[in-house]
Design a protein around this nucleic acid. Sequence first.
DNA 1: CGCAAGATTGACATCAATCAACTGAGGTGG
DNA 2: CCACCTCAGTTGATTGATGTCAATCTTGCG
Lengths: 261, 261
Amino acid sequence: MADDLYPLTGRFLQGRLRHGMDQRELNILEGLIDRTELLQGESTILHRGDFCEYSTMLIEGMAIRSIADHEGKSHIVGFQVPGDFVDLHGFALKRLDHDLTVLGRARVGYVPHERLRAVMTQEPHLARIFWFSTLLDASIHREWIMKTTQLRAVGRMAHFFAELWYRLRMVALGDASGFQTPLTQTHLASICGISTIHVSRTLRDLREGGVLDFQRGRITILDSDKLKTIARFDPAYLYGEGGLAVGNALDKGTPETLVDG
Amino acid sequence: MADDLYPLTGRFLQGRLRHGMDQRELNILEGLIDRTELLQGESTILHRGDFCEYSTMLIEGMAIRSIADHEGKSHIVGFQVPGDFVDLHGFALKRLDHDLTVLGRARVGYVPHERLRAVMTQEPHLARIFWFSTLLDASIHREWIMKTTQLRAVGRMAHFFAELWYRLRMVALGDASGFQTPLTQTHLASICGISTIHVSRTLRDLREGGVLDFQRGRITILDSDKLKTIARFDPAYLYGEGGLAVGNALDKGTPETLVDG
DNA sequence: CGCAAGATTGACATCAATCAACTGAGGTGG
DNA sequence: CCACCTCAGTTGATTGATGTCAATCTTGCG
């Protein structure tokens, strides 16, 4: 459980703008969730083209955004961790351009769009916070474009692991030694745009190079400086506010206030 | 000039949600622009890390979003055309994670954040339209991730040209035979994540294959079906509404209403 | 005219995809 | 309990795509 007071939405923007919301807003946020659902295994909760009447918050577990190509094969274009309001953009876009799939065991919460419409008219500050959270995804997308056009296989994988580690620690998951994840090498291949075979080879190189180890659903970080260097990782694009919930090895940023009234 | 009634903002969401705004809102939008500026040559109008007090609309010309790597070399992660509210997200993010640079001759309009704050509190529907327009960029980012992880050099270039052609025609620029652009092969290399030399080779292949021709700032489309096939291009992610302003060769979509009250 | 930036071409090196074969863990049914 | 299956991961050999280096050409412009 993320937070005793806010068991459903306690991780939303944790480590980022969460402090920018007052008690009243945090209560409104928690109250937006109509019902939750526990999912097991890989299940797609939203399909491209769906017209949604609710948006989904990821409470526990991880999820991927993917787009099917002309042959029906799907490709991962985004990754979400607990606290992410994963298809808030479905509210403003109305129709989704991609699929959303949870991995492993996950709990999601549903927010009726009707309630979001009320937020838009009655809670402009909260509306702006929501807007911010969707722009965070866009910023991550830009970094992924950068990473795939700029880095080779080792760098891409290192970058993804560095980002994931950082994001998880922002929401008080994982620790200084590593983190758990339901990802398989096939997922990693899709995320990094390389073949599964080359993922296997690259993971071996990272392990033998003393950078990190990936075994049975757990990433162990062996040398965070090496990881950061190989990945050319600079967490500024994640808009964190300096302090990580747990550990701090990759973080050199300074606290800032990002959104005002 | 895009539109006699709305010379500054006439292209904003043209071909998309523009019809979702009423006369009153269109007037408010046009009135948001405080002043305009005419720029020549490649000039960076916004820098990573800037705390902005205004947002920028691209009125004429084209612009790139870029991120500098650890060596200071910049990499293009996004491309903007006239009508794009290019750093509207700077309003909600407050601090930009990338640079914005206009190419060639361009006119931009500045909107003070103060006026956007007023929109948030007094014009929730317009606020939602603005939100939508930033999510459009995110959708395009996702497609770029897809394109760079999924396609080889020829496919990436074809995809970029198909997208640009489509986006330009949405705002009544370019025509069935092609379009003008201030891009150089160096820009294309950065956008597609390949070397400039390979861009040259690939353009030759596209020319010799009768797909398209790129000469002195003009792209001539020779065979739009071939282009679409090589690029695996499906314009759904651009959230167009069916009718292009000029020509229709790549468009197979059906009209839809995307945002409601 | 002469320079600089952009573009082109050939030769070669490197990275990563593909093909094929094999291992190991977990699950299921007899 | 074991035989069998499937899915995930590993390894080696080969091929193809693309990067890099070096040289040359073209164009626009002062």
